[in-house]
Design a binder for these strands. Structure first.
Length: 478
RNA sequence: GGGCCAGUAGCUCAGUCGGUAGAGCACCGCCCUUUUAAGGCGGGUGUCCUGGGUUCGAGUCCCAGCUGGCUCACCA
């Protein structure tokens, strides 16, 4: 089997070394090795002759005949290992000699500093923990090929430390969100990923099949309708951080599965959610970015509160000079602006298109866009004094949509009508079970969704969603 | 799905007008007991993405395909 795999010369040599190790009674793949993180021997923790036990991956090796130096990396840092033939058992020296860059080893020894002051472990014991059978990408230029970086993310993580940092940051962002919401009395819940109706948004779902039940199921496109059922059930502050799946195009800003935060707070509304969104994001910036500068291209993004608020129609007027509400020939006007419109589009659909084309890319600083037409927001309450306008905002930053919030519609009769409108009268496409839950009474509430991947893109100044998702979706290799 | 661009050694890249494949790192051999992008001497290890075509001759030109990037479309 393994002979079938065509290997290059370097891999062949490493396989040969693996066999040689086994031949001389040395396991090329070791077992548990008790050690301390490398960082615990560096800086203030350094003491001359202190005993050290470390383990990690060899990233550089400099042989000198009867001695050799290695750079050993673990997650916490890098330490130099020094092996001398005259101060170590012969067997251990021969293991050290047989190591290749990329191997994972355990080392025991004592600390000292070299002439240049580098903290070094002089080894008196070396153990092979994992033989690496492939050469690592080059130490100086790293791994640049984007396809390889995504397909073999482990290599990207080994070699490109800024990639590692991005994903550590991602973890901190999510932890900060949890801490923030937990401290405000929210509880985290989990709702179905597999749903018999894919509701809560308008995207195309992925379809799957449950054999025992004999039914088709859909991967969720949003958790919204389940989270609101929990409001009916008496949970007043709930949130979920989890994956949504949308069967749409893949792009710099779209991955078929992406992580969404959805928050619902009973007795609040969309302006409460506005404040919450500001609070959460500013908190993350403070804790994760340590107040550092966030940039989009060359522009610094200023996160100081309060953020700008503007109505959809105003923002379009500001950028295009056109008051689309008053405009009779809105189709031609939109077309002149370079927006692709189709004859069956409503005026608001055209306005929304113009917004996405002309305004969205320019919303670099955090901006709440409000006053969306209610026809585009079937789950949102309308304004008290204007049923045509929804109590909704979308948050934009770095030229893209980051969040979306409503005052949640809690009138079951109106909800059913709006669903029917959206489904163009097709009862089968209406989530009657959700409407039924509203019929028992859902408290007025605010709901907020934040796209976590995009938020991390903004906070880490990444241009592509693939740089903040560990394993982005790619076509399988042919 | 459309348009544009890219794919050469394990990695990062060069390759002129179409003339028979090249650098650094890595690797192999020899030397070297404080090096750190160690050093010295010697060595090129290749399905030039794949398959066709043009040509005396193709990494290079043409066609088709694969994968990726950007972009448009799609995506409340």
């Amino acid at each position: 089997m393994e002979e079938d795999i065509k290997q290059n010369e370097q891999s062949e040599l490493r396989k040969k070394t693996r066999k040689e190790l086994i031949g001389s009674g040395i396991a090329p793949y070791g077992r548990a090795f008790s050690r301390s993180p490398i960082r615990e021997y560096l800086g203030e923790n350094f003491a001359e002759n202190k005993k050290a036990r470390v383990a990690g991956r060899i990233r550089a090796k400099r042989g000198h005949g009867k001695t050799l130096f290695m750079d050993l990396f673990d997650q916490s840092g890098k330490i130099q290992v020094y092996v001398r033939k005259d101060s170590i058992a012969e067997a251990a020296f021969s293991i050290a000699e047989k190591t290749d860059i990329g191997d994972i080893i355990g080392v025991e020894g004592s600390l000292f500093k070299t002439k240049t002051g580098e903290v070094t472990v002089i080894a008196d014991y070396v153990e092979m923990l994992a033989k690496s059978l492939h050469p690592l990408p080059e130490k100086w230029h790293g791994l640049k090929d984007v396809e390889t970086r995504y397909r073999q993310r482990y290599l990207d993580l080994i070699v490109n430390s800024e990639v590692r940092d991005t994903f550590i940051k991602r973890s901190l962002v999510i932890k900060t969100i949890r801490d923030h919401l937990d401290s405000r009395g929210f509880i985290e819940v989990e709702t179905p990923m597999m749903q018999s109706m894919a509701g809560g948004a308008a995207a195309k779902p992925f379809k799957t099949h449950h054999n025992a039940l004999g039914i088709d199921l859909y991967l969720r496109i949003a958790p919204e309708l389940f989270l609101k059922r929990l409001l009916v059930g008496g949970f007043e502050k709930v949130y979920e951080i989890n994956r949504n799946f949308r069967n749409e195009g893949i792009s710099r800003r779209h991955n078929p599965e992406f992580t969404m935060l959805e928050v619902y707070e009973a007795y609040s509304d969309f302006s409460g959610m506005m404040e919450l969104a500001e609070n959460i994001i500013v908190d993350i910036h403070k804790k994760v970015n340590a107040g550092g500068v966030v940039r989009h291209n060359d522009t610094e993004i200023i996160l100081d509160r309060p953020w700008k608020r503007i109505s959809l129609i105003e923002s379009v007027k500001n950028e295009t000079g056109v008051d689309f509400l008053a405009e009779k020939n809105f189709m031609q006007t939109a077309d002149k602006l370079g927006v692709k419109v189709e004859t069956e589009m409503s005026k608001w659909e055209v306005i929304n298109k113009v917004f996405e084309h002309a305004v969205e890319p320019k919303l670099i600083q955090p901006t709440f866009v409000v006053d969306y037409p209610s026809e585009m927001c079937p789950l949102s309450k309308t304004k008290k004094d204007n049923p045509d306008i929804a109590e909704r905002f979308e948050l934009f930053m770095a030229g893209q949509e980051l969040a979306n919030a409503y005052s949640e519609l809690n009138d079951p009769v109106e909800q059913k009508e709006r669903f029917l409108e959206q489904a163009k009268g097709d009862f089968l496409k209406v989530d009657i079970d959700y409407v039924k839950s509203l019929e028992y009474g859902m408290p007025p509430a605010g709901g907020l969704g934040i796209g976590i991947d995009r938020l991390i893109m903004v906070l880490t100044s990444k241009e592509s969603i693939r740089d903040v998702i560990l394993f982005p979706q790619l076509k399988p290799e042919a």
